[in-house]
Design a protein around this nucleic acid. Sequence first.
DNA 1: CAGTATCCAAAGGGATACTG
DNA 2: CAGTATCCCTTTGGATACTG
Lengths: 118, 118
Amino acid sequence: MECQAQEFKHEYKKEMRAVQDAMYVLNGKWKIPIISAICYYNKRRFSDIMKDVEGISNRMLSKELKELEMNQIVNRIVLNTQPITVQYELTQHGLTLQGIINNLTDWGVRHRLKITGK
Amino acid sequence: MECQAQEFKHEYKKEMRAVQDAMYVLNGKWKIPIISAICYYNKRRFSDIMKDVEGISNRMLSKELKELEMNQIVNRIVLNTQPITVQYELTQHGLTLQGIINNLTDWGVRHRLKITGK
DNA sequence: CAGTATCCAAAGGGATACTG
DNA sequence: CAGTATCCCTTTGGATACTG
């Protein structure tokens, strides 16, 4: 019993860390909207994402994309145009976020209904 | 075609808002760890959550619990002891977050493996 | 077009001390 | 026990201007 409690505790801490890892990647105001936009269009350019994600500044978009790239969520593809254009796409790993984003979306709809009644 | 694009755009914006609503509720360093702790023990007291969620201060725990209560994620139950004790439990609405948290946990494990290799 | 650089305001959050 | 209050540093993020 004590032993199992220890076991639980250990698992619990590991799960805690995992969920915090996940949230760390997705945290902030813009990460999920950016991922959603890229996912929705499959491939998407910097200036287009700016239009998709309402209210974001180029500074923030740049910063967030860099972080997402570091976390292997998006790929950055430079095209040989003049002037250069850059496309972003989700990696295989990034695509595995789709289910979570869909769940969050559904929950968000129910939550808004619950809180505001519409 | 144009019309359907408009339709898509409209849906897309609604979904964007929904996912942002959800993230707004869960954002920050502590929300999900707190929810997880309460969920794990079913009912949990303030001082116990302090121990469960490593590193949190009483100030932060108080603030976050208040927000979760406002968003109808947790119920606050004052017990008639001396001195008073307070229990927190998830609401029905709060319980609907379990699936999302589990998904985030699973994803977090895979992500850590991907990034750190362990 | 796809960013960087700089500056600044607001929010987040830790440490400590205090209260009913 | 379950918080509040205060102080203060850090992080986030907006506005504007600039560059290859």
